[in-house]
Structure formats: structure tokens, C-alpha cells
Amino acid sequence: MGQGASTPVEPPKPKKKLGIKTGKPICCCCPDTKKARDECVVFRGEEDADCIKLIEAHKICLRDEGFDVK
């Protein structure tokens, strides 16, 4: 019985989920709604009525891409 060098087996990397329309990861999908949402939240806060609408619009866009967004 020899003492062979064993190479460590790396676990498979989880595949990143990609949008069904664009094939992009979630961070890169819906750039227009993402930018509007981010700017609103920074300057007005998450609780602002306009920001809430922009947040929901971004979520809808991401859902349309196939992502599970709460």
C-alpha cells in the first residue's frame, strides 16, 4: 500500500443565478430602476413615498428577470 499524494477535491462552486432576459447576474440587471432607487434612498430615505414606488418598480423588474425577490 503506497502513500500516493492525493489532491484535494474542491467542492463545486454554486452557479450564480442569471436573469432570463439579459443573462446577467442580479447586480447588473435593471440598471435604470436600480439607479433611480439608489439615488432616491440616499437623498430622501427608504420611507419616502416616491422611494417606495421606485423600490417596488426595481423589484418588479428583477422578478421579470426571473429572480426571487421579496
Rank of each mutant, 00 (worst) to 15 (best):
L62P: 02
I20A: 07
R37G: 00
C30R: 06
K16N: 04
K16I: 11
K16M: 10
V69I: 15
T33Q: 12
K17M: 08
H58Y: 08
T7F: 11
Q3L: 13
A5N: 12
F67H: 04
K34A: 14
L54Q: 07
L54Y: 01
P14N: 03
R63A: 05
F43W: 04
D48Y: 05
A57K: 15
D48W: 04
V42H: 10
F67N: 04
I52S: 09
P25Y: 05
E65F: 04
Q3N: 14
C28Y: 09
K59I: 00
D64E: 14
D38G: 05
C29S: 14
R44C: 11
G4L: 13
K15V: 07
F43Y: 08
K16H: 06
P12T: 00
V41I: 12
E10P: 02
L54F: 00
C51H: 02
A49K: 15
H58N: 15
C40V: 04
G45S: 07
L62C: 05
F67T: 03
K70W: 04
K13G: 00
K34V: 00
P25S: 04
I60F: 09
P8I: 00
L54I: 03
A5H: 12
L62M: 10
G23Q: 05
D64T: 08
I20Q: 12
C30I: 02
K21C: 00
I20M: 11
G2Y: 09
I26V: 14
